[in-house]
Amino acid sequence: MSAPLPAPELRPLGVDGVLVRFAATLTEAANQRALAFRDQVNAMNLPGVTEVASSLVSVRVGFDPAQTARQTVVDALQTACARLDDAVTAPKRRWDIPVAFGPDHAPQLTEAAALAGVTPEQAVTEIEAQILRVIAIGFAPGQPYLGMLPPHWDIPRQTSLTAQMPNGALVAAVRQLIIFAADAPTGWRHIGQTAFRVYRPDSDTPFPLSPGDAVRFRAVSDSEYVALRQNTDTNGGARCTVLS
């Protein structure tokens, strides 16, 4: 049983925003509260509220100052905070995503597994067994932060940056996994590769994942990954199940 969470803090974030912060450190409980709060504020349909964006442990509520006032928004959010119970938000959707864990497309799996104190085979088994949640989307468009892995996966970022992580790279650090949205540098370690695209600007659904979604990874061979990548209309082999 973890310690009770502190009362949420409300802070300004820009002339058109209020940030509601649920904790000073990332925990699953704080992330769940942020996601539940986001859902609740969305359901309230507050006049003048233009955007409700959740992060790891906080939610920014954006408003149009021409339509409402900060104090009105703050009052409504405080009411929402008081009503927020500890009910865990069940995922609305589950994604099953094929990942190649090597040998060709996972250059740092062995290194990351060693830091977590397991063999590469155990690492893949553990990741496959885990039902992860999208705890936030951000940094790059559509890019999911997935968590949380078991505590022994609390591995640090590398001190030096990997100059170019390819689109679809599965990277690990601090009990989280990220599917990379674009070719970009990172300090996280490259442990797998998926043909699933988390950002498709030209599509009707540019951002397939949403915070709160459940994600399971399924290991596939390098050759299966290459086939999925070449077959561009299969969503990288990913399947989405709507949960009741």
């Binding site: 986001r38 233009t50 955007e51 409700v52 964006a53 959740s54 920014r60 954006g62 989307i137 951000g138 940094f139 790059a140 468009p141 559509g142 890019q143 949205a181 950002y199 540019p206 951002f207 915070p211």
Partner: peptide
């Protein structure tokens, strides 16, 4: 392009 912060854009 406002309104996509939650999606990382």
């Amino acid at each position: 392009r406002p309104g996509w912060t939650a999606e990382g854009l």
